[in-house]
Amino acid sequence: MQPQFLLSLLDGVLGTIVLSVLTFICGGLAGFVVALARISPLRSVSFAAIAYIQVFQGIPLLVQMGLAYFGPILLGFESVPPLAAAALAMSVFASAYLGQIWYGCLISVAKPQWEAAECLGLTRWQRMTRVVLPQAMRIATPPTVGFLVIIVKNTSVSSLVVGYQELTYNAKVINNATFEPFLYFGLAGIFYFLICYPLSVQSRALERKFNVGTR
């Protein structure tokens, strides 16, 4: 194995991490909005959130990549940088799932706590920020960390269509030159594993800790 290939893979790891972080930040913010919209008392707002979640959970991320890549051209952009298109598609995708996950957490806290807080004479805003959110964030942590794994794995989809140069993309390029798929895809797999496994373990540990806490 030549050192330049290993360097190229590590470069890919960096690309994967950059896209994952961008996705988590943008997708997280958007997902928070989706979750809030989903619990909105306004039917039209909550319905829009449901539709958003259903649509973007109902079409493949790869298709969303294509829409994010070719869509902006329609709006007059010359071309879209692969990272921007990938981050846009991934953020939309992540927001649909995180919105759903966090909605579940909000609801599970809100239902029993809402009335208690109402009795204390708190306003809706106070109830939300002082009572519901802190508790919801606690139970949302394990599934959110678990979803990070899904984000990292799904960055591999951006090697197709938009052609963002992350780990899978670079591994594919190297394989095209060397024809050693077991070696290079195996190495790529190991790198993904090294990123994802600690997150999976962490997610499970948090879940256990939380379960013990509520018992």
Binding site: S159, A171, P181, G186, F193
Partner: peptide
């Protein structure tokens, strides 16, 4: 191993391999 690696890498590894 499978849950912590992408499907695409698994497919490349298996099919191209």
């Amino acid at each position: 191993v499978i849950r912590n690696t992408p499907l695409l890498i698994q497919a490349y590894f298996l099919i191209f391999g």
